[in-house]
Amino acid sequence: MSLWKRRLPLICTIVFGIMGFILQLVPAFKSFLDIQNQWMTILFGFAIVIGVASLTKYHFKKIRQKPEERIFSYITFSSLIVMAVATLFGMKAETGIFNALYKNLFDYVYVPLDATIFSLLAFYITSAAFRAFKASSWLSTLLLFAGGIVMLGRVAFGPLMVFGELTQWIMSVPTVAAMRGIKIGIGLGMMATSIKIILGIERSFLGGE
């Protein structure tokens, strides 16, 4: 295990982990905690680079390996450059061509594409519900009934109000009980993982050798 590549990062985790734990518990260190928060903001800010790096690497690889799909990678890169330049120079400016370009690209390219791609899920869930939502056992029938009642209950009015009341009961009694059990389990699991991290037992987040 090399010192610089593995042991030292692990020591950093343990030191900062214990520091975090103590800063949380001891109010006397409040002013140091404030400074530490400021510091973490900077560190986090650069984490964005990870996404950019993996995307660029992926598309460079694709350009080299799949010449027929090259055009899409060119589209990605050129739109990346145009948007990056527009944002760099246009985001803080109040007027000017970069500001106009930035605003239009954000409002009429980025936002609609993001929202529309995400909204495809509406169709997938409909088709999935039709094909896969089957009453094959009594437990799945129960799931089906609960789902159906909630779906009706959330849009209920007038004569359908009985579904509205049933929905409120399903959500505030069985759902609360089931989700609470799950949440307590998750909470204990998260605590265990955190303790394993600051004790240096859990190391998977550091990646391979």
């Binding site: 890169f77 990346l80 944002t87 690209l105």
Partner: peptide, 17 residues
């Protein structure tokens, strides 16, 4: 692909600003 490019470009520019 346009969406991917625009998203990353936006992230770079706004992270700086």
């Amino acid at each position: 692909h346009l969406f991917i490019g625009v998203t990353v470009g936006y992230t770079i520019g706004s992270a700086w600003n």
